[in-house]
Design a protein around this nucleic acid. Structure first.
Lengths: 66, 66
DNA sequence: CTAAATTGTAACATATATATTACATTATTC
DNA sequence: GAATAATGTAATATATATGTTACAATTTAG
């Protein structure tokens, strides 16, 4: 599961820890999502988007078969 | 978790059962997601989008605080 | 270069998404 | 309006996302 969480997070000057606290999850969860090792829930995806001021498509969209 | 799965599914003439089979999940899972009682995984959201020819934003986006 | 901050990752525990089975309810077709 | 299809929903089981704790590795700041 590749995504743009890391680049979006850096773009708003947040560390993994800060983003995690803002959202109410663990730093490890953010780390694993950025590394593509977790399949996050929709709610968590939305919370991440709100924190980095982007939409689902901008951060998590993957073209079919891509 | 309110979403537009049901309306999108109907728009492409699929029953819950057919959508579920296309995606490889159970009919119950589709039902519960449509009713807003499940918090689906990103992968499942993407698979639903592919099946109904829409994007994440079109089917699952919710405005912050809305 | 060294100390501190940031990030990666592992083991185990817990919460929850999803499957399975089954039955009830609602909508559709004849 | 009866038969059939489609959907809602409940109980239990399983898989997996996430938390917790801890430590290693990497990056950044002084």
């Amino acid at each position: 599961m590749d995504n743009k969480v890391k680049i979006s997070r850096i773009h708003v000057n947040l560390t993994q820890q800060e983003l995690a606290e803002k959202i109410g999850v663990t730093r490890q969860t953010i780390s694993l999502i950025e590394k593509g090792k977790y399949n996050p829930s929709l709610k968590l995806c939305l919370d991440i988007c709100y924190a980095v001021n982007k939409t689902l498509d901008e951060v998590f969209w993957i073209e079919k078969g891509g």
